[in-house]
């Protein structure tokens, strides 16, 4: 089965491309490809003109960060530790082992928490957070890494109406900071609020083209 065929997209720094389409149109598959989790049968991905190897690690090293439709947090770790995980790729490391910088981490975690409005105790295990809270923790984990490319898979799903403006502000801030954002989202108003271009995937295998540049 062909999930994505002839899909062509370009996202410039400081812009947001919204990817819309029905269930099964390949939105999440597209994010898997763009984050190096899935190697397509054909086609290429370039970041700043270079093609990273097809591994999530290589993509992460190029500054690609993502969230997942179903949040993939570390259940045993506290809320703050989960957010701080997003810093891993930005820390100095020795032989691949990241070295902590406590005061820097604490400040960055605070900023990310505020950006998406997390008011849970920092040590509460992520397993005990609600779905909407887990979505926000994951978005904070993306924000904290100051990514050059952010892939957001339905960041507003399961988030209460009154909390949406705050999250949209967080995404807008990401765009303003110069991140190239790819946003998969069903919420039409959200798309209109932050997206600078829209890519529509109609059904599996259909062709689509979009560019924000």
């Amino acid at each position: 089965m062909v999930a994505l065929d002839g899909v062509d997209l370009a996202v410039a720094a400081g812009t947001c491309l919204a990817v819309v389409g029905g269930n099964g149109s390949g939105k999440s598959t597209l994010l898997d490809v763009l984050s190096g989790l899935r190697r397509p049968d054909g086609g290429t991905v370039e970041i700043d003109g270079e093609r990273p190897a097809w591994t999530p690690t290589a993509f992460a090293e190029r500054g690609v960060r993502r969230s997942f439709q179903e949040p993939r947090l570390v259940p045993d770790l506290g809320v703050d530790d989960n957010i701080a995980l997003g810093l891993t790729g930005r820390l100095t490391s020795v032989a691949g082992i990241p070295i902590s910088r406590r005061s820097y981490e604490a400040k960055a975690v605070d900023r990310a928490r505020n950006a998406v409005g997390i008011d849970l105790p920092g040590r509460r295990p992520a397993a005990k957070a609600s779905y909407g809270q887990r979505k926000r923790i994951e978005l904070a984990r993306v924000l904290i890494g100051q990514p050059s490319v952010a892939l957001l898979d339905e960041p507003l799903a399961g988030v209460a109406d009154e909390d949406r403006p705050r999250l949209l502000d967080g995404i807008a801030a990401l765009v303003e900071a110069g991140t190239a954002v790819v946003l998969v989202e069903h919420d039409q108003r959200a798309v209109e609020a932050v997206a600078t271009a829209v890519l529509e995937l109609r059904s599996a295998g259909s062709r689509a083209k979009a560019s924000t540049a």
Binding site: S35, G36, L37, T55, P56, T57, F59, A60, E61, V64, R65, R66, F68, R72, L73, V74, P75, D76, L77, D81, L85, G86, T88, G89, R90, P98, R141, G145
Partner: peptide
């Protein structure tokens, strides 16, 4: 802990 919970997700964070 991230590796134990979900190695692929961990790698997308640069772990």
């Amino acid at each position: 802990f991230a590796v134990r919970a979900d190695e692929l997700a961990a790698r997308t964070m640069g772990v």
